[in-house]
Design a binder for these strands. Sequence first.
DNA 1: AATCGTATCAACCGCACACCT
DNA 2: AAGGTGTGCGGTTGATACGAT
Length: 230
Amino acid sequence: MVRSPCCEKEHTRKGPWSREEDNLLIRHIMFHGIGRSWRALPREAGLNRCGKSCRLRWINYLQPGVKRGNFTILENRMIMNLHAQLGNKWSSIARRLPGRTDNEIKNHWNTNLKRILLANGIDPDTHKPLSTAIFTTTAPPNNRMNSSSSSGTTRTPPPTDSATSMSVVTTNNNSSTTTMMKIGTQTSSSGENSSACAIIMSSGVTITKEVDVESYPELNLELSLALPSY
DNA sequence: AATCGTATCAACCGCACACCT
DNA sequence: AAGGTGTGCGGTTGATACGAT
């Protein structure tokens, strides 16, 4: 079966959305709803865009309730847990995280969470240990974890008064593997050090985190992972 | 100041599936 | 039952910002 293209690609605009286009889309949906189909919507709204593009823009950025900005410790924990259960089912994961979209979760996973698991010797696909060797590593400073605005042009500057480093130690005994991971030490402007606590359960992996940090939680993770014996 | 490398994320692409005729 | 259409999803890309040199 030969599929027809979803829209007239030669005559539709691509790339970042302008404020005017956003306004047209918002106004149209506010007045008329999604209507008969996404395919027909751009023409009805006076937009020179593909229907799929309109749908994506609305779902990911324009519809009310979309949450922007840093992922909380709780959200990170839920994503890790759900990914362990569901795999790359980003839409299913997103449905369990109110206000977050599949695209944003997918990006966050690929740029941040995946790296943390890898640095800790855990396969991000299987959530099982890559190796049981004892090792220590230093991760590159991840000072760009703050999200940008919906326009994609402004970025929140990273904290300037914290040193970021990661050390991971995995130890074995007869019954289990225990990994201690420390990511960074935050020193506030007033000179106070703080540390952070959470428990992440994912397919047999328990992650404990000491927490009393309000800000920059990603930069100040003190984790201890208790891995089951596989 | 200029250049290069890297990280981030918005947006696109193609596929699969559900629904309709 | 077969073909056509619309939608949703996951993978990937490309533009941009930012840090390092």
